[in-house]
């Protein structure tokens, strides 16, 4: 059976680095995470899915449609992208969010329709951006910019939301705020989400499907419980860790261990 998002034998990349046969599928309404060390091909895959990199091989299907064959405009109506680097531009927040309606505009349609305004207001309220809609994007903190970028992505009314490390550079308050929002969107709107995420604990806590990458290949995929185990993590990150469970949520938790403690623990049995 074909999934809602079906990526099969997909490859893209650069002359010196290519992805190798990426295959996984997501069901509608999943909140999926891509994890893996730096240089493992997460961002390359992300760029392949957004169309920034040309597909060299394989297919990407979204709800039965061939993504690489879509026109840019059609693609923007189906897939919304929140990139890693936030927007340091002099644009009022409300207009920035309104840019999410661009894929639906005609060439000489200069002004926002009433529906555009409804959608923008709805998602600004949902993301909490409404409180500072008249500020400039450049005046916002990193967390606020990320929320505005998500609001903009939502006004595209996408079927799939792609996020590139939505919590990087944020303090824990904002990390949790952004991820809570993404989880709420996923559950309340049924939005399918695929995001790159560095923090294994947050990945385990929030995602219900994980794809773990190493050297341009998928090393493991499945539920957080299946992926975030000691053997996989050590093989991929080449770092000793201790895995356990979050006492409240029961989700996998990963602890890093310092070199000194590792040495001591090795000596203990003697």
């Amino acid at each position: 059976m074909q999934g809602y998002v079906e990526i099969s034998n997909f490859s893209c990349g650069y002359p010196d680095f290519k992805l190798d046969g990426i295959t996984f599928s997501l069901e509608r309404g999943m909140l999926a995470g891509i994890i893996g060390p730096n240089g493992s091909g997460k961002t390359t895959l992300f760029n392949g899915l957004t169309g920034e990199l040309l597909a060299l091989n394989g297919h990407v299907w979204l709800n039965g449609k061939n993504v690489p064959e879509m026109k840019l405009r059609e693609k923007a109506q189906h897939i919304a992208v929140v990139s890693q680097f936030t927007e340091k531009v002099d644009i009022p927040v409300e207009e920035y969010v309104m840019m999410g309606r661009y894929p639906y505009r005609g060439k000489f349609q200069f002004f926002d329709s009433e529906y555009d305004q409804e959608v923008v207001e709805k998602y600004m309220r949902l993301t909490g951006v409404y409180a500072y809609k008249n500020k400039w994007m450049s005046q916002l903190s990193g967390g606020e910019q990320q929320l505005a970028a998500i609001a903009r992505a939502l006004t595209q009314e996408p079927r799939l939301l792609l996020l590139d490390e939505p919590t990087s550079h944020l303090d824990i308050t904002h990390q949790v705020q952004v991820l809570n929002l993404i989880q709420r969107l996923n559950q309340e709107l049924g939005l399918t989400v695929l995001m790159i995420i560095h923090d294994l604990n947050l990945a385990g806590e929030y995602c219900n499907y994980l794809v773990m990458m190493k050297n341009g290949k998928i090393h493991a995929k499945g539920t957080p419980e299946e992926v975030l185990n000691y053997a996989h993590i050590e093989a991929v990150y080449e770092t000793p860790v201790v895995t356990n469970h979050n006492p409240l949520s029961g989700k996998p938790a990963v602890f890093l261990v310092s070199e000194k403690v590792m040495e001591q623990s090795r000596k203990k049995p003697e």
Binding site: K71, L72, K75, A76, V89, F108
Partner: peptide, 24 residues
């Protein structure tokens, strides 16, 4: 050029982001 105002506005975010908004 008035037909390209939307594209020029989107380009303010950068080329990649403009493409994500459906601008060729």
């Amino acid at each position: 050029s008035l037909a390209f105002t939307r594209s020029l506005n989107a380009l303010r975010l950068g080329e990649a982001k403009a493409r994500h908004l459906g601008i060729n």
